[in-house]
Amino acid sequence: MKMFVEPADVYLYMDIVDFRKSINDLIVVVEQNMELNAFRDALFVFCNKKRDKLKILYWDKTGFALWYKRLEKHRFKWPVDANLQHLNVSEQQLQWLLSGYDVIGHQPLHYNASGL
C-alpha cells in the first residue's frame, strides 16, 4: 500500500468494529480502548465482523486520514487473540494482510550480502 506517510508503528485493533464508525469514532477507540495516542506516528487498522473490510486511520501532521479497503470475494485473515487488545505488526505484515495472507507466523525476510 502506497501512502503519504511512513509510520513508525502499525497497530491492529483485535476486536471487531462497527464500520458505521467514522474518523472521530475511531479516534475514541484508539484513545480509550487501545489506550494509545491517536496523534502518534502510527497506522491504526480496524476490521469489520465479516472480515471483508478494513479501515486504516492515521494522523498525517495536518489532519486525520481514513483509508478503506473492501474485498469482493474473500475475507482478510485477521489474527484472533482474546488476550490482546491490539497487536503491533510490521509494515511488511500489513502488506501481507492487505494481500490476503495470514500475518501471524510470517516474519520479514532478511538477507545478507552472501545470500545466506
Rank of each mutant, 00 (worst) to 15 (best):
M14E: 06
I16G: 11
I16F: 14
V17N: 04
V17W: 05
D18H: 02
F19M: 11
R20V: 07
K21Y: 15
S22R: 11
N24K: 12
D25H: 12
D25N: 13
I27Y: 09
I27A: 10
V29T: 07
V29A: 05
V29E: 09
V30M: 01
V30R: 00
E31Y: 02
Q32Y: 06
Q32A: 07
N33K: 13
N33Q: 14
N33F: 08
M34V: 01
L36V: 02
L36Q: 14
L36T: 05
N37I: 01
N37R: 02
A38G: 05
F39G: 00
F39W: 01
D41Y: 06
L43F: 14
F44K: 02
F44N: 00
V45W: 09
V45P: 04
F46K: 04
N48L: 08
N48S: 08
K49F: 12
R51W: 07
D52N: 15
K53R: 15
K53C: 06
K55G: 05
I56W: 03
L57S: 04
Y58A: 00
D60H: 07
D60S: 06
K61N: 14
T62N: 15
T62M: 13
F64A: 01
F64D: 04
A65P: 05
W67T: 10
R70D: 11
R70M: 05
R70Y: 08
E72L: 15
K73S: 14
H74S: 15
H74E: 15
H74T: 13
R75I: 13
F76P: 02
K77P: 07
P79L: 10
P79Y: 11
V80C: 02
V80Y: 12
V80T: 13
D81R: 12
